[in-house]
Design a binder for these strands. Structure first.
Lengths: 231, 231
DNA sequence: GCTTTGCGTGAAAAACGCGTGAGAAACGCG
DNA sequence: CGCGTTTCTCACGCGTTTTTCACGCAAAGC
């Protein structure tokens, strides 16, 4: 494959603010990453093509091209995990970013610890997926082949739609799925604005698989954005 | 395993022409095979179930059932190598036969030498076939070889379609089979939307194999999705 | 501080899928 | 040809699932 175990993982930072780049260069290098940088979107795409990085950190507020476009061009040929950075305001950008295929996002300011945790998660879930057909998260166990779900061994009965949602979340464990993505996946493209469906069904799902539905351990909600199954 | 090294290899000849049977009996016996015979397709399937032969020689031109069907029924529970014999020269038969799971094909007339060479080849390539050919779930017992179904010892009479469905379910015990899969499997691809057939037949099946058809223990329905045999 | 926005909840209404019985049509066998 | 069996068709009742709606609450924005 790529530089998996033999070398340091390569991370490409695409951001026009030099302070941020410097900050990330220092902290990520110290943690064992090989850090490369690009100051513009154009340069970012080019460098990514040459470098084949293991993970990309992409700022939305680029001067030349929109972050979305950078991501789209990246996705035309690569499945590299991408973590989006956004300045506080603007849910719309974040959502567009996730819809376009970003794996996760962070709002500035952020802590290095959190960033690195998300990078690990993104890389972990970006595996070529030799899909073992059964996944386990904590006490939650999903057998995709038999379509069976259990919580600490006890079988859970899910309806068609509930299972469809959980399946989507599980396939992308650790990754934020936008409302739109979930609705498209479980109901179809023509439902992508019926976000209230999600509230109802996430509630039902939690009631069935969470021990304490008020403090969810598995299905986390990303306010204004979507939902995520921990992974 | 079966009678591999310790005994003579057993060969079952299914052919309605007595001269061919005699010819094969003489020549194969002389070469160290234990030869058994069946004159009809029906008898052939039955004898194969009892004998567990190491190789089967199957004529296509049988009076009662089509050779293809004999082969299909054999393949429902066994991986025994089958060599097809045919008087016809058409490619169509050949293809159909091989599609149905025959290992090789000979057109009459043929030489004993060639037949035996192909038998050796077929046996060499044969799978270890760990198939037990009979499955038991609770009180329900299905013998794929003889197509016999019993509930707590009592034999149950199933129609062709009922058995086809149960067979599908049993092959995938524990997994959910979608309406579409069941309909394709039991009726054919052009029936994949006739979900009401399933309701009728699942009802009949349950009436025959469930002690309490209202609270099924074996055939579970997954609403909006399909059915599943517990396992 | 007040308004806005999004999330979670419960409960009712509507839609859907399932099981059933019974009759018609097709088939298989003598 | 005639009979019994099997498959197909249909319509009804019922339980489940989906959809809709209104409200309380909390966090974010002005």
């Amino acid at each position: 494959m790529m530089s998996e175990n033999t070398e340091k993982p390569i991370v490409l930072v695409i951001d026009d603010e030099s302070e941020i780049r410097r900050f990330l260069r220092v902290s990520l290098s110290a943690s064992g990453y090989e850090v490369h940088e690009a100051a513009t979107g154009e340069e970012g795409v080019t460098r990514a093509a040459l470098l084949r990085p293991d993970v990309v950190i992409l700022d939305l507020g680029l001067p030349d091209v929109d972050g979305i476009e950078v991501l789209q061009r990246l996705r035309e040929w690569s499945h590299v995990p991408v973590i989006a950075l956004s300045a506080r305001h603007g849910d719309a950008d974040k959502i567009a970013m996730l819809d376009a295929g970003a794996n996760d996002y962070l709002t500035k300011p952020f802590s290095v610890g959190e960033l690195m945790a998300r990078m690990r998660a993104a890389r972990r879930n970006a595996q070529p997926a030799p899909e073992s057909s059964v996944m386990q998260v904590g006490d939650l166990r999903i057998d995709f082949a038999s379509r069976a779900v259990t919580v600490s061994g006890a079988p859970v009965k899910l309806t068609k739609t509930e299972y469809a949602l959980l399946h989507l979340l599980a396939e992308n464990a650790g990754k934020v799925l936008t409302h739109r993505q979930l609705l498209r996946g479980a109901w179809g493209p023509e439902y992508e604005n019926e976000t209230h469906y999600l509230r109802v069904y996430m509630g039902q799902l939690r009631k069935k698989i969470e021990t304490d539905p008020n403090n969810p351990r598995y299905i986390m909600t990303e306010s204004g954005v979507g939902y995520r199954l921990i992974g």
